[in-house]
Deep mutational scan, measured.
Amino acid sequence: MDETGKELVLALYDYQEKSPREVTMKKGDILTLLNSTNKDWWKVEVKITVNGKTYERQGAVPAAYVKKL
Rank of each mutant, 00 (worst) to 15 (best):
Met25Glu: 02
Arg21Cys: 15
Asp40Trp: 15
Tyr65Cys: 15
Leu33Gly: 00
Ala64Arg: 13
Glu22Ser: 05
Asp40Arg: 11
Asn38Gln: 09
Asn35Cys: 14
Arg21Leu: 14
Asp2Arg: 10
Ala11Lys: 01
Ile48Tyr: 13
Asp2Thr: 13
Glu45Lys: 10
Met1Arg: 12
Val23Phe: 11
Asp2Gly: 14
Gly52Ala: 05
Leu34Thr: 04
Leu31Phe: 06
Tyr65Ile: 06
Leu33Asn: 00
Gln16Pro: 04
Ala63Gln: 04
Leu31Gly: 03
Ser36Cys: 14
Pro20His: 10
Thr54Val: 13
Thr37Gly: 10
Thr4Met: 13
Ser19Gln: 06
Asp29Arg: 03
Thr32Ile: 15
Gly5Ile: 12
Gly5Asp: 10
Pro20Glu: 12
Leu33Thr: 00
Glu7Val: 14
Leu10His: 03
Lys67Ile: 14
Leu8Asp: 02
Leu69Asp: 01
Thr4Lys: 13
Pro20Asp: 11
Ile30Asp: 01
Met25Ala: 02
Ala60Lys: 13
Leu34His: 03
Val23Arg: 02
Ser36Arg: 09
Gln16Phe: 14
Tyr65Leu: 14
Lys53Ser: 10
Ser19Thr: 11
Asp14Trp: 04
Gln16Thr: 14
Ala63Lys: 04
Tyr13Lys: 12
Arg57Lys: 14
Val9Lys: 00
Leu69Met: 09
Lys67Val: 15
Val66Gly: 01
Ser36Val: 06
Asp14Cys: 08
Asp2Pro: 14
Leu31Ser: 00
Leu10Tyr: 11
Lys27Val: 06
Asn38Ile: 04
Leu33His: 00
Asn38Tyr: 07
Val23Thr: 04
Ser19Val: 02
Lys43Ile: 15
Lys53Ala: 11
Tyr15Asp: 02
Thr49Met: 11
Thr4Leu: 12
Lys6Ile: 12
Thr49Pro: 01
Ala11Gln: 00
Gln58Phe: 06
Glu3Gln: 14
Lys6Trp: 09
Asp2Ser: 13
Lys6Gln: 10
Ile30Gly: 00
Ala64Asn: 11
Leu31Ile: 06
Lys18Trp: 04
Ala64Asp: 09
Lys39Phe: 09
Lys53Asp: 08
Thr32Gly: 06
Tyr13His: 11
Asn51Lys: 07
Val44Pro: 00
Asn38Arg: 08
Met25Ile: 15
Lys26His: 09
Ala63Pro: 05
Glu3Asp: 13
Gln58Arg: 11
Asp14Thr: 05
Lys43Ala: 11
Ser36Asp: 15
Leu69Val: 10
Tyr13Cys: 15
Asn51Gly: 12
Arg57Met: 07
Asn35Phe: 05
Glu56Ile: 15
Thr54Phe: 08
Leu31His: 00
Asp29Asn: 06
Lys26Ser: 08
Ser36Ile: 07
Glu3Phe: 14
Glu45Ile: 13
Gln58His: 07
Gln16Ala: 12
Ile30Tyr: 04
Ala60Asn: 15
Val66Leu: 15
Asp29Ala: 05
Lys67Met: 14
Asp29Cys: 07
Lys47Gly: 04
Gly28Ser: 03
Lys47Ile: 13
Val23Asn: 01
Asn35Asp: 15
Val50Pro: 00
Tyr65Thr: 06
Thr32Trp: 10
Gly28His: 03
Gln58Asn: 07
Leu33Tyr: 02
Lys68Glu: 05
Glu17Arg: 14
Asp2Asn: 14
Gly59His: 02
Val9Thr: 02
Lys18Glu: 07
Val46Pro: 00
Ala60Gln: 15
Thr54Gly: 05
Pro62Ser: 02
Ile30His: 02
Thr37Leu: 09
Tyr13Gly: 04
Leu12His: 02
Thr4Val: 14
Val44Ser: 00
Ile48Asp: 04
Thr49Asp: 07
Asn38Gly: 10
Val50Thr: 09
Lys43Phe: 15
Gln58Gly: 03
Leu10Phe: 08
Leu69Phe: 08
Thr24Cys: 07
Pro20Arg: 08
Val9Asn: 02
Val50Lys: 10
Glu56Thr: 15
Gly59Thr: 02
Trp41Tyr: 07
Val66His: 02
Glu7Ser: 10
Ala11Asn: 02
Val23Cys: 08
Arg21Ile: 11
Ile48Thr: 09
Glu3Lys: 13
Tyr15Trp: 10
Trp42Ile: 05
Pro20Gln: 09
Glu45Pro: 00
Lys53Val: 14
Thr24Asn: 04
Glu17Thr: 07
Leu34Phe: 02
Tyr15His: 03
Val9Pro: 00
Tyr55Thr: 12
Thr37Glu: 14
Val44Gly: 00
Tyr55Glu: 10
Thr49Val: 13
Lys47Phe: 09
Ser36Glu: 15
Asp29Ile: 04
Leu12Arg: 03
Asn51Phe: 08
Thr37Pro: 04
Lys47His: 11
Leu69Tyr: 07
Lys67Trp: 09
Ile48Arg: 08
Tyr15Thr: 00
Gln16Ile: 14
Leu8Gly: 01
Asn35Lys: 07
Val61Glu: 01
Asp29Lys: 00
Glu7Gly: 11
Glu7Phe: 10
Leu12Gln: 02
Val23Gln: 03
Leu33Gln: 01
Asn35Glu: 15
Met1His: 14
Lys68His: 08
Val9Glu: 00
